[in-house]
Each structure stands twice: as C-alpha cells, then as structure tokens.
Simulated scan of single mutants.
Amino acid sequence: MTGARDRVLDAYETLLIDHGPGAATLDAVAAAAEVSKGGLLYHFASKDALVAGLLDRLRERSAADADAIRTSPDGAVAYYLRTSAPGGPVPGGVTRSYLAVLRISEGSATGQAIRDALAEVDADAFAALRAELDDPVLAWLAQLVGDGLYLRTLTGTPLPPGLGVEDLLARLRQHFPVADP
C-alpha cells in the first residue's frame, strides 16, 4: 500500500506532467492524492517543501537507477540506452519524476535547486557509465546518445523507422569498448 506522502508526490507529478505547474496547486494536489489539505501540509508544509520533496524523490530514484546501470548484466551502456529509448523499460519511476521536475524548472523561485538536482542526476549516470568505460569522452558520448533517446521518450517522438536501440549498440560495439552481453 502506498503511503500518503508517496500518493501526494505521485499526484503532484501527474498534475505537473498532464496540466503544468499552474494546475498543481496545493488544493489540487491534495484532491488528486485523495488526502485532506491538512494531510498534505503534514508531509509538505508549503509549495516549496513539495518541490523539495519531488527533488528528493528524483535524487533517490536516480541513485537507484545509477546502481542498476552499474550492475546490469548487459553492461552499463546497453542498460542506459535501452532504458532511455521510447518504449524501453522504465526504471523505477525516474522518468516521471524527471519530467515533472522539468515542468517546474522554468520560472521557478527554486530554479537553482532544480538545476542542482538535475546536475546530480546527470553526474550519477555519468559516473555509472564511467564504471564501464575508461575513456571519459566515450562515457560522455554514450550519455549524450542516451540523453537524445530520453528526450524522444519524454516528448513521445518515435525512433526513425527501421532503427532501434539494438542497432545503436551493435554499431557502438563495432567501434568502442562497450560490454557485450
């Protein structure tokens, strides 16, 4: 059973993603989470506290995803690209949290905290890729490819017809020291 705090964060993410920051009022979040406003305020005393809670959730999910990247039996690069691509497996809700944070990043009073959280998420993934790839430029290249795939996932843009993540991995394995499954 999901606790009230998680239901509030789930509702906040959904409102941000589906309707934007203007629709994510405390009253709307409480109603969507099916908690009283007092129940919401018990967990998050203000809108800024709610944003901070969402950033903490993103960091936690990102750290778990970085661990999954490092320990994937198929290798870090393969995991990162597969989970970044449209229609790929979604690791632990990190995509929803990331998208929700992106929705509040523009014009937010907590903009620096948001940028810091996103930089931490980026650093987690880079460090996990570096655990497999000794060359930092190759690790960054793999991250940029994954980021491009992730952008397609976030925007709902499909991959080019006839091409998929396995095609990318096959080509990378031809030219770079990327782990084979």
Rank of each mutant, 00 (worst) to 15 (best):
A24N: 13
G146Y: 00
L40S: 04
L159D: 06
S105M: 14
V94Q: 00
D147L: 12
P160S: 13
L41K: 01
A100M: 04
D122W: 03
R173M: 05
L26S: 08
E13W: 05
R130M: 13
A127M: 03
E120M: 01
A127C: 03
D135E: 08
R57H: 06
L9H: 04
A64Y: 00
D67H: 02
L15D: 04
D48S: 14
G3Q: 12
G156P: 09
G93C: 02
V94M: 02
A109N: 08
A28R: 11
L40Q: 02
A128S: 08
L41W: 09
P161V: 07
L168Q: 06
A170W: 12
L151V: 13
I17P: 03
L16N: 04
S62D: 00
R82Y: 04
T95Y: 01
G87D: 05
P91S: 08
L149Y: 05
L41I: 10
V35D: 06
A68V: 01
P89R: 12
G75L: 11
L159F: 07
T157Q: 14
R152Q: 14
A76E: 00
V101T: 10
F44D: 11
L102F: 03
A139F: 02
T25R: 12
A113R: 13
A142I: 07
A100K: 04
A127R: 08
G20I: 10
L102M: 15
P89S: 09
Q143D: 11
L172K: 09
H175D: 13
D10Q: 06
L163S: 13
Y150Q: 05
V101Q: 07
D74Q: 11
G38F: 12
Q112L: 14
L163Q: 12
D18F: 01
A23N: 12
G148S: 06
A85V: 02
E60A: 15
G39C: 10
A24F: 10
T25K: 09
I69T: 14
V29C: 14
E120G: 10
G3W: 09
F176K: 10
P136C: 06
R82P: 00
Q174T: 14
P160N: 09
